[in-house]
């Protein structure tokens, strides 16, 4: 269990590093394009590159955000529930969400495969963009993993406590 937890945290951390570079990449590309436009030589692919990097930024932060419990829960009613019930609900929540995001990850992967196989290229730069799609897919996979590890954590704590 501890080992799984550590792997999960390391994975989230690794993705956050790449995401960090991507967000600085957006900053650099978009700023450079402003400067280039002033000298009448804008980079025609700036829109696309920024969009693709944006996808990486968000996808790679999903697992970390969940680990930090950064997603908002409506607690108006459940904060009055008994502690035991609340913990069970948390487990149910992790399970449903984990299953759902596994599906999402798988489907984004399928979508990427479709683009790869059909040879579809990006609109402006005419480059193969499936690696970015796969990146988003792996971001969701790590989110699902994080949810499952949290679920397992709930069980372990229950046995110990």
């Amino acid at each position: 269990m501890k080992y799984l937890e550590r792997v999960n945290i390391a994975l989230n951390g690794f993705l956050m590093v790449i995401g960090g570079f991507a967000v600085l990449g957006i900053m650099t590309v978009a700023t450079a394009n402003v400067v280039l436009r002033m000298v009448h030589a804008p980079y025609r692919g700036a829109y696309e590159v920024v969009s693709f990097l944006g996808a990486v930024v968000i996808a790679f932060a999903l697992g970390y955000t969940e680990k930090k419990k950064g997603n908002i829960i409506v607690e108006i009613l459940t904060e009055r529930f008994p502690k035991r019930l609340r913990k069970t609900l948390e487990g149910v929540s992790c399970m449903i969400s984990g299953a759902f995001f596994s599906l999402v990850s798988w489907q984004i992967y399928e979508y990427g495969m479709k683009i790869l196989e059909s040879g579809e290229l990006s609109e402006t730069l005419k480059i193969a963009f499936h690696p970015f799609v796969f990146a988003v897919s792996s971001g969701f996979a790590v989110l699902a993993l994080t949810l499952f590890v949290d679920l397992a954590g709930l069980f372990v704590n229950r046995e110990e406590g």
Binding site: I26, Y47, V50, S51, F52, L53, G54, A55, I58, A59, L103, V104, Q107, I108, Y109, E110, Y111, F132, V133, V136, F140
Partner: peptide, 15 residues
């Protein structure tokens, strides 16, 4: 679900 997620994540306006 696959295509929608990709479309939202790669939208320029949201960057």
């Amino acid at each position: 679900i696959g295509a929608d997620m990709w479309n939202i994540f790669s939208s320029y306006g949201l960057t």
